[in-house]
Structure formats: structure tokens, C-alpha cells
Design a protein around this nucleic acid. Sequence first.
DNA 1: CGGGTAATTGACCCGGGTCAACAGCAGTGG
DNA 2: CCACTGCTGTTGACCCGGGTCAATTACCCG
Lengths: 255, 255
Amino acid sequence: MTGTVDRYEMVNVLTRRIEAFTRLSQDDRAILERMARRTIREVGARRDLIREGDAPRSVFLVLDGWACRYKTLPDGRRQIVSFFVPGDLCDLHIYILREMDHSIASITPVRVAEIARDDFEKLLADHPRLVQALWWDELVTMAIQREWTLNLGQRTAFERIAHLLCELYIRMQSVGQTNGNSINFPLTQVDLADATGLTAVHVNRTLQELRKGGLVELQSKTLTIPNMDALKDVAMFNDNYLHLDREGRHLDAND
Amino acid sequence: MTGTVDRYEMVNVLTRRIEAFTRLSQDDRAILERMARRTIREVGARRDLIREGDAPRSVFLVLDGWACRYKTLPDGRRQIVSFFVPGDLCDLHIYILREMDHSIASITPVRVAEIARDDFEKLLADHPRLVQALWWDELVTMAIQREWTLNLGQRTAFERIAHLLCELYIRMQSVGQTNGNSINFPLTQVDLADATGLTAVHVNRTLQELRKGGLVELQSKTLTIPNMDALKDVAMFNDNYLHLDREGRHLDAND
DNA sequence: CGGGTAATTGACCCGGGTCAACAGCAGTGG
DNA sequence: CCACTGCTGTTGACCCGGGTCAATTACCCG
């Protein structure tokens, strides 16, 4: 999977992701990568990138590492509402809102491209095919959030964790971050608990069940899924909401 | 509140909603209302407007009545992932996806404007201020979905229902659909259960607690909130995620 | 007045939470 | 090289919020 990943490949995760939807032209790809390379920020593990209440200023893009959005209640309860894996963008146009209604934090050390509002607007104005692709990205983000709503509302702990693991595996796969049937998986059991609305203790027990059933191997930050079909089955995982099947292929660049 | 609502007022709910963000020009308002009036569809209560797996064709806008998005699991478990109240739009650009990953159904009889893809694209191309406003709408929709994630993951049944009632009240208020401190509230206890991930039995018991505490009155399709501050308090409701405070006022039309 | 949907109640149960102790392991500083 | 610290994972005993099942009771609406 990784080993040494050069800067080119890191920027590449976004084009890789977008090309699950539509093929970009050399020009689109170049402009996107140039933009992403402009302001790269490196942040250590477990730090807030932006906090609820802050004024959003720029769009950002995770080039390397994992991050999450989270919300908290006044008494400290905490819910991770989504994960960012390499290639994920935060909300386009977020800067039209006055203040953030959630926080974003790194999980591992991350490398993030921050795209200034004006640059971003210009990008959209000049590159219609990118606009479509970024819309697709946004729609997928929304679909994931709805799927999480279903996950939290209806699935049992066992199904819920299985489902989350399926999703993260497939999202990593869609940006070429797999190694055989394994991915790099930096979440702790506490992270999983905060994302699934369970306690860390119960996550632990549920993971043991999943391991016992031969459905997952999870150790030293590596997740292995020996039989994806079996895991999808118990999770009732249907990947339609990720819209990965090159649905925008009629928009492909032909150069 | 209602009684007889003429056609003008029904279309008006969207402009009303948008003007919680930015003031539109006469021209913007006119174009939006003309568009909405183009293809009005009336649908009875409890019918699917579009089903998971269908190809999305148009954007639609709820002019009158309530609807919901929902997702189901293969074994029949059902989660309502969001509600539409008058003035709510379904996802812009949804038509770039090949198939729906969720269904949309009416709750009451609804009057819906279906805006064809091409008309909608044209609207966006010609009216930049509307584009901003519709972006705002989309960002709020996403923020609501995240708040629901928090709701399902962290709040107790009592807090969760209190929170949902706050949200729906305030959303109705933002389109001028209140009557004193009451709103028209067509959801059954089963609907509430499907939206909160609880059972109808438990929703019933929880509503009784809320009534006993004097926090809500709910009878014959009318929800009354005698003391909003008290309800917000137990729900830990923070309305920041609805971004209603005319955040885009710097974009206001000045005609 | 009959038939169907929505609300309510009671008895009982279970998935997942709580609390507390402990084990493994990585980093870090002496 | 080892002791110390702190985080992550694991286990056991016990408990409770909310689910399940099944029966009633309103409430519409024609």
C-alpha cells in the first residue's frame, strides 16, 4: 500500500476519488493538483483543525491521514459524525456560513490542503466538469450521513460496527489505499464507540465476536477483511449510497 | 396560521425560507415562484414520491404538507432520516446520480413543485444570488443530518424526542407556519419512533413524560410548546446548526 | 354503528451501559 | 537498560433504558 508515498501521490487521492465518478481531462487534473499543492498544512494526531463556533474560512482536503467531524453536548457526550480518509473534502462553500456547527479533528497526523475561498470560487467558475464532480462528492457525503442515521437508528451493535468497517474499507479501496484485503486502520476502540453511539467496552466485546466469527481481523492498526461478502451480509451493507460505479461517465473528458 | 392558503402563499414558503439567509430581489423572487408554479404535483398522504433504486429526474420542492426521506433494511426495519416541511427542497443536483439511495414519501397530502433538470440548471446559471441561497439551503440540510446523527448516537429517548420537537417547531416557525406557540403537527407516534430509532411504545411513554413535565402539549395533530426555553434546555438544543440568523445578509439584494 | 388506524397500558425481558480492576505496550527520560 | 507514565484494550459483575408482546381503548370517517 504505502511505504513511501511521494507528494504527487498524496495530491492524487482527490483525482483518484473523483474519477470514481467521471474521468477528468489532463487540464482539470493539473489545475486541481496545483490548487491542492498551494497551501499544505501538516497537523499532528488528535488536534482540532477547526472548532464549533469558529468562522470557516477555507475549503480543505485531506491528502494524507485520517480525521473526523464531531459534535459534543454540553455535558461532554461526544459523537463522531463522519470520518475523513485521504481524498475527502470538507463541505464546499462552507465559508458562506458564519460559524461552524461542528468541529473537525485529526485522528492520525494529517496533511491537509487548505483552499482559499477565492481560489476555490475561481476554480469552480473556470472548470465546469470539476463542478459536476464536486457536486457528486457532496451528494455522496450527504448519502453517507443518511446511512449513518440508519446505522445508529436501526442496526444492532454487531451490525453497526460491521457496517462501519465495510464502509471505511470500501472508501479506502476507492482511493487505492488497500493492501491485499487489508487497510491501514488508525481508529481506537474509543473512536469506534464515539462514532457508533456505543461504549468502548461494548465495542471491544463486539469486535471480539466479529473476530470469533472470522469476519474481521483487527490488530496493530491494520484491518483485514478476509471475506467481504460475508461481512457485507451480516452488516446488511449495500454500497449503492457511495455511488461509486462511475455514474458520471457520460461526462467523461475525452482527451 | 392557515385556514385558506392561496396559491401565492404556498409558493412563497421557499422564498420565505431563503430569506432567513439573504434578501432576494423582486426579480429573483419572481423567477423562483414562476419556476415552482410550473409543474405542481399533488399527492395523497402516505405515498412514495420516489423510491430507492429509481432514477432521480427532477429537483422538488414541498409547497404544502409534510414528507420524509426514509431508508429500510432488507428485513423491514425502517428509519426516517429527515423530514420535509413546507419550503424544503430535496437535494439540488440529485439528478446527476444514477439511482436514489433512499425513498421519499408523503406524510400528509402534499403539494410538490417538480423542477425539471434543465430548468433548474438554467435558473442557477442566470441567478447567482439564488445559487448562493440554494447552497446555504444545502449546507443547512447537511447540518441537520449531522445533528440527527448526534441525536441518535448520544441523546436519551427523552432528550431525543424533545430535540426533534424543538427542531420541527423552529423550522415551521422559520417559514411562518406557527400559530401562537403551536404548530400543525401531523406525525404519528410511529413516525416519531421511525425517526428517533425508538419503538412506538416507548415514544408514547416518553411523550407522556414530556406532557407531565409541562414541556409539550400534543393532541389532535397540534403541537404546542408553552415554554420553548425549558424544552430547549432539556433537549440541549442549540439552534446554531440551522444557521437562521440571516447569515448571508452581506449578499442581500438592494432593490 | 362498524372498521381501521392511532394511542395507551401492563408484564416481562434483553442489549448494551456502568463501574472497576487489570494487562499490554509504546514512548521517554534517567 | 529499566522504571515510569499514559493510553489502549480486555474482562467480570451487575444494572437499567428501552424493547417485546399482547391486549385494550380512543378516535376517525363514512
